[in-house]
Design a protein around this nucleic acid. Structure first.
Lengths: 233, 233
DNA sequence: TTTCTTATTGTAAAATATACATAATTCAAT
DNA sequence: ATTGAATTATGTATATTTTACAATAAGAAA
């Protein structure tokens, strides 16, 4: 191989962090500000970072999440890399990259991860001054995101849909520690875009040895309270 | 972010090319020779390449396959990226990299693809002097491969097992254009590591509108010849 | 006490998956 | 021509899984 065409891009990781608020699937996005001739331009991006010199990809993704939320032991799974040479062509993105890295950055290949978190865990926006918010997955298509982050989110969504089909245990990464069967069903139906029958769903759950009933019911609801369950491996 | 730790590795693509010879799953590996103090050391590696300056990842993977085999329109699917900083630590691998690229290469992040090809298509080892051969997937664990290519192959195998479960149409990428139901069954059973019942399997195939019987039977077998089928989308 | 809202529970029918064995076809050997 | 060896082709009964469907129970609010 001749080496004149060899070029080394930067490599980054980006995390598509999913949460479930009891109704909708949400994605965690970071607020971004770009100073553009006297105007401030604000938009959103995925949490991510260029990988460090001796850092494994998985480690980089964990670090990004930990720096942003303070959380450890989050379910994280690499799902796809994005390396289109045009993905860093937008002038705002270039501007922002130079501001934040202090480097001349040409091309970035990014390795994308999905993360599943319990949305009720208080996120401590610790190490950084970064502001992050949850956004409804259905809003994303109407939002203007940095780079190709909208594409990455949709690919990530596809990925967890497959993944949750194969490993239903992962649903419990998204639910609070104590949950009702309705919550589990709503989540299941949201993810798989179906409407399952209440009784049949109940039956299926009854056959899952890892979903165990607690001696407790939900509180503060203006109607009959549902029994609480927990997940046990 | 401070930039002192930012570092840009090279990015490559590697292809795990699967074929099926009627009995076993095979992987296409490239022969590699390294001159080591008066001795020639020979081993095998995955077909791959560092990505070119303005080349998309998918494009690079297609190029690698085309340069090696002369084939176009092969099923190709990205499945995982490998970026452990230690993956390029072996001295033979470093030697080989410097020889072939004429560059000082530190770290390489590789984006891995699986490809499915009909093993009966004559591979034209065209553009290169590279020699490639098919190896039984079960032999891999006893072979010494370059870099972390053995790991990559096993991850690729896992990937196509999932993929073929979700998209049974992909089986026909591996079979010859005309095939018997036995061949399809053997392939199915090999991939999914089961032994399916002949009659039940036949029934299932009969329900696939995309598997159509031809007016032709296989030739040159020393027993009753089986009917041939073709795949039609 | 009535009303409202959601939780909880079973049964019958349909669809799907599984288990299982014999006859037919072809080639090769005698 | 007959036989043997190898492999293809085929149906039915049973078990399992999935689906469709509605009435009662519980708790809070009015």
């Amino acid at each position: 191989m001749s080496n004149e065409n060899i070029y080394n891009p930067h490599v980054s990781v980006d995390c598509v962090v999913f949460g479930f608020d009891g109704e909708k699937l949400k994605v965690l996005l970071v607020e971004r500000s770009i100073a553009e001739q006297n105007e401030m331009y604000n938009d959103k991006k995925l949490p991510g970072s260029i990988i460090l010199q001796d850092e494994d990809l998985d480690t980089a993704a964990s670090r990004v999440l930990n720096e942003l939320t303070g959380l450890k032991n989050i379910y994280l799974s690499q799902f796809k890399s994005f390396g289109n040479p045009n993905r860093t062509n937008d002038s705002r993105d270039i501007l922002w990259l130079e501001k934040t890295t202090q480097l001349k950055i040409g091309r970035i290949v990014t390795v994308a991860y999905v993360a599943l978190v319990k949305i009720d865990r208080k996120l401590v926006f610790s190490a950084t001054d970064t502001l992050a918010n949850w956004y409804d997955i259905n809003e994303i298509k109407n939002m203007n995101l940095a780079f190709d982050h909208a594409d990455i989110i949709f690919e990530g969504l596809k990925h967890i849909r497959h993944r949750l089909e194969l490993e239903p245990h992962l649903f419990f990464e998204l639910l609070p520690r104590k949950f009702t069967i309705s919550q589990l069903r709503t989540l299941h139906d949201t993810v798989h875009q179906v409407q399952s029958d209440v009784r049949n769903f109940q039956k299926k759950v009854a056959q899952m040895p890892y979903v165990v009933a607690l001696d407790e019911v939900e509180a503060g609801v203006p109607h009959r309270a549902a029994r609480l369950y927990k997940y046990k491996k």
